[in-house]
Design a binder for these strands. Sequence first.
DNA 1: CGGGAAAGCGCAACTCAGTTGCATGAACCC
DNA 2: GGGTTCATGCAACTGAGTTGCGCTTTCCCG
Lengths: 142, 142
Amino acid sequence: MSGVNRKSVADAEERLRSTGERVTVPRVRVLEALLQAGGALTHQEIEVLLGSAALDRVTLYRVLDWLCVKGLAHRMSGGDRVWRFSAIDGQHGRHAHFECRHCGKVTCLDKQSTDELAVNVPRGFRSEGIELTVRGRCAQCA
Amino acid sequence: MSGVNRKSVADAEERLRSTGERVTVPRVRVLEALLQAGGALTHQEIEVLLGSAALDRVTLYRVLDWLCVKGLAHRMSGGDRVWRFSAIDGQHGRHAHFECRHCGKVTCLDKQSTDELAVNVPRGFRSEGIELTVRGRCAQCA
DNA sequence: CGGGAAAGCGCAACTCAGTTGCATGAACCC
DNA sequence: GGGTTCATGCAACTGAGTTGCGCTTTCCCG
């Protein structure tokens, strides 16, 4: 809302720098947007957030993909078969989400880390990650 | 595999009958396919299962949608942004899924009911259902 | 049974998120 | 600063899922 936050730009840049890969304008801007957002964003929502100087659609997809591969973000599949992306906070790691059936907004349940969730899988199956989404009504749509 | 199973046809028909809505050929065949399947199926996989006398794509989508509304099936969004559907067994209700990152197959974790999972949501949020998907390697792809 | 209203089916055309290939431009190493 | 390598942007494509509409089936009631 308050335009560009200098601190979060630096934060985004540092995270990118730490991967050892190239730090480009699109990557900084997208990661910054994810860091400032309170929930998981669709690529459309990110485009709106970036506003005036929007990126090419394809670039946005590629940046988001890249962020996931590098472990800086993760993707979740919403109830509308659209990808949503959220930054992975060093403290909380991968987390659960809440998706409002009414307004469609996806909120991160930071306290609900999915890394430590214990789920029994059949013999021979190996779990590498858990996606947990709660659906219902958010506070605004109650 | 063993062609049409008469018992499961009757089972599917009875479930449909109990909704008080019309019992049609497509509905019976689709529900039967879901009941026999060991996991969640994409609409493509269902088409293959139905084989020779396949339904129209659109009809299949509508039947699946209808089954979800009536509480006879539920849908989950896979890692490939494709819907998958599985029959809801009266005993287990909604359940968790395992999605293999390698072969893409989705297995139902029947023992892992999501109805009784306790997840904390923020104040004012109301949970109406939980989707839990474990991703990793299945026994065959280990 | 059989006739008719209401609901479901099938076809064709459409939408839109996400992808691919390739030429241009920017980041980083030295 | 100069060259290599990788990322970006454009255009054209893919494929899951949807919509509108005329035809067929279900099922109720006589």
